[in-house]
Amino acid sequence: MNAIRSILFYVAALVLTPIYCVIGTLILPLPARIRYRIVSTFGWTRLMMWVVEYICGIKYKVEGLENLQGVKPAIICSKHQSAWETMALQMVFPPQVYIAKKELLYIPFFGWGLATISTIFIDRSAGVESRNKMLDVSKKRLNDGFWIVIFPEGTRTEPGAKVKYKKGAADMARALEVPLVPVAHNAGDYWPKNSWMKRPGTITVSIGRPIYPDGRDLASITNAAHAWIEGEVARIRQ
């Protein structure tokens, strides 16, 4: 049964993704927040999350929403175990953008869709120049009311894996003088990294208190995020 559900998910993705990528291309002249609502809030993301819940049987619950009260657009520093959280975070948080390598922009349909939702593309080979450009664009996105999602592990990790966090999220939080909001979840238990099979169940998403960069170095900010996220993931999985 799980196999059939998983196949239906991919069928839905294959049907809906090209449609919304074309829609996204047509609405590029519209303001960024309106494009986001069309493609994400009321469009592709919401439809795919419906498929995930009602066909794959994967639901979710959110803890710690009170920690977002009074927080202006900031950095979302999230655990990364699957593709699930790239969709679910859009349902949990206010409008947001992702940071992605520029090569993804050239993938037919997928890359067009990323461009539609104001993704921040970076050239990893450009070094300091790429960082400065990323910070400039990120500041503009924050001023436009978008939160910025960063996965500190740099790639998807399996549940229980011990991975050193990169300092990019802390660097951005300090450079732009905004808080870093840690997010833990156990999506990997139901949406495994190296498997196409989805397992029904309820994913827990936990939002921590903002970590403010004032007077802290990169290591201190990164270590604080790492300690909270990993400790919270361990608690969720018990």
Rank of each mutant, 00 (worst) to 15 (best):
V183E: 09
Y190E: 02
E158D: 14
L180K: 04
T157V: 10
W228V: 01
E66M: 03
F9P: 05
L176C: 05
C21D: 14
E158H: 14
D189F: 01
E103V: 07
S6K: 03
L114E: 04
V52C: 06
G111I: 12
L114W: 09
S82L: 00
P108E: 06
I203A: 01
P179I: 07
D217M: 02
E85C: 09
V178H: 02
I55K: 02
R199K: 12
L104M: 03
L218N: 07
F151E: 07
E63C: 01
I34T: 14
C56P: 03
V183Y: 09
F9N: 11
P73A: 07
E66H: 08
W112G: 13
P95K: 11
E63T: 10
Y106M: 08
A3N: 15
R141P: 04
S125Q: 12
Y20H: 10
S125N: 13
I120L: 08
D189G: 01
N143D: 13
G168M: 02
Q81I: 00
P108A: 07
S195N: 10
R46Q: 15
R199N: 10
T25H: 14
N143M: 09
K198W: 12
G24K: 10
P192S: 02
L142M: 05
I19S: 13
L16S: 07
P18I: 12
K139S: 09
A32M: 09
N194S: 11
V97C: 02
P200T: 07
Y36K: 04
D171Q: 14
T222V: 03
S78A: 12
H80R: 09
K166P: 08
V163Q: 01
L105P: 02
P108N: 06
T157C: 10
I4H: 06
A225S: 11
L30M: 11
G24N: 05
I38W: 02
F42H: 15
V149S: 15
F109P: 04
G111F: 00
M49R: 07
A224N: 09
S40D: 15
N132M: 13
T222Q: 00
I58G: 11
L30R: 09
N223P: 06
F151D: 05
E158C: 11
W84Y: 11
I148K: 01
I55S: 10
L14Q: 03
C56M: 11
I211L: 06
C77G: 08
Q69Y: 11
K198H: 12
T45H: 12
S40Q: 15
V233N: 10
V11C: 07
A126Y: 11
A170Q: 00
L26F: 13
N143I: 12
Q96G: 14
D171R: 07
D136H: 15
N67V: 06
L68N: 05
E232N: 09
H80G: 07
